[in-house]
């Protein structure tokens, strides 16, 4: 397990974000096709996702937006019989580069799921999970990561007195913010969110949306959402997918006020989907 640290060709855990100017093509998808067995789910996707901004993926169910998101950290590799064509680069490096270990790739990309999935461990142990599997044993480093991540996820004040209690005792909204805290504990570069609010009530949703807004100064965020208000509220760029194709990708304001494609307009005005 320690050797994964040495072969970590991306950024070592714990390094602060480089203060350089944000790249406009931090995540670059080129000529990307994706297949579940014989069924093609994504068709020739080309897009450039800018660094430290929020990009929303919208589109009707089954349009491929989650599939693309789950390719960024190669979660789709867990499914049998999937294959891809084309390439995705993150920070200029191909995620399919055989020199990059999938483990270190996933370590540099945080992911938040549709349904909150805290481990049946204490709040503290949930947060430090990624650090522990990376071999971090230094109590001070772990404590620091817990406070920083929980503050980052706006959860610190609510749970600081019960860090050693089970994470399963939290409310639904708190659990989802805990999962966000867990995802950013190892200082990833990218934060992927797959419909993070779909199981939350409006108040908890508002909290998570505020959080997304605050987190984008440190992380490149890609969020899949079914909620178009959510996309307008918290994203800078919006990509509209339909039947596995990227129909339109532009500034969120432009997409929702003056889309250039007829299909996009039909979707955002609720004529289908």
């Amino acid at each position: 397990m320690p050797n994964t640290m040495e072969t970590d060709v991306t950024r070592p855990a714990g390094t602060p974000q480089a203060p350089s100017t944000p790249k406009s093509d931090f995540i670059k998808v080129s000529g990307f096709n994706f297949f579940y067995g014989k069924k093609q789910a994504l068709f020739d996707i080309n897009m450039e996702i800018p660094e430290r901004q929020v990009t929303a993926f919208i589109g009707p169910s089954g349009c491929g937006k989650s599939t693309l998101l789950r390719n960024f950290n190669r979660m789709n590799d867990l499914i049998d019989g999937t294959r891809h064509e084309g390439d995705i680069t993150i920070g200029g490096r191909s995620i399919y580069d055989p020199k990059i270990e999938i483990i270190s790739l996933r370590r540099s990309i945080g992911m938040v799921f549709q349904k909150s999935n805290p481990f049946p461990k204490s709040i503290y142990e949930n947060i430090v999970y990624s650090l522990r599997i990376a071999g971090q044993r230094n109590r001070r480093v772990l404590d620091e990561a817990v406070e920083r991540s929980l503050r980052g996820a706006a959860l610190w004040d609510e749970v600081k007195d019960r860090l050693n209690e089970s994470a399963l005792g939290l409310s639904g909204g708190q659990m989802q913010r805990l999962c966000i805290a867990r995802a950013i504990a190892n200082n990833p570069e990218v934060l992927l969110m797959d419909e993070p609010c779909s199981a939350l009530d409006p108040i908890a949703t508002a909290k998570v949306e505020e959080l997304i807004h605050a987190l984008k100064k440190d992380f490149t965020i890609v969020i899949v959402t079914h909620n178009m208000q959510q996309a307008t509220r918290c994203s800078d760029h919006t990509a509209f997918f339909y039947l596995g194709k990227l129909i339109e990708f532009d500034a969120t304001q432009k997409i929702f006020s003056n889309p250039s494609q007829k299909k996009t307009e039909d979707y955002i005005t609720g004529r289908f989907g």
Binding site: M1, R106, R107, G110, F113, N117, Y129, S130, I133
Partner: peptide, 21 residues
Amino acid sequence: PATLREGSYALGATRWETIFR
């Protein structure tokens, strides 16, 4: 739940770390 397995993999855990932790 499969979501716990996914969560663990997404944090960079190997299969064995996921099984044991």
